[in-house]
């Protein structure tokens, strides 16, 4: 529980987009701030739809936001 093999660059991407807050990102993708925080910390793997929404907000392909690394599991 909570161990996630999917790593992400959301923190870095938020920083690169004018230090976008978790709340601002959450509002744009339709989830709570706590869910964005859980995704960032690897405590929750989002659905494909939310993953694509995140990538769309930052204007990057999905694999720039998430990558699968089974070794970290």
């Amino acid at each position: 529980m909570g161990d996630c093999a999917i790593e992400n660059q959301i923190r870095q991407l938020r920083f690169n987009h004018g230090e976008m807050t978790q709340q601002a990102l959450a509002d744009r993708i339709g989830v709570t701030r706590q869910t964005v925080n859980a995704i960032e910390l690897g405590k929750y793997s989002p659905s494909l739809e939310v993953a694509f929404r995140i990538a769309a907000v930052f204007g990057v392909p999905l694999d720039r936001v998430f990558h699968y690394s089974p070794a970290s599991r």
């Binding site: 989830v31 709570t32 869910t35 659905s47």
Partner: peptide, 11 residues
């Protein structure tokens, strides 16, 4: 606002 917002997928 939080109380009225629908549950998201994680919740």
């Amino acid at each position: 606002e939080e109380a009225q917002a629908p549950k998201d997928e994680r919740e």
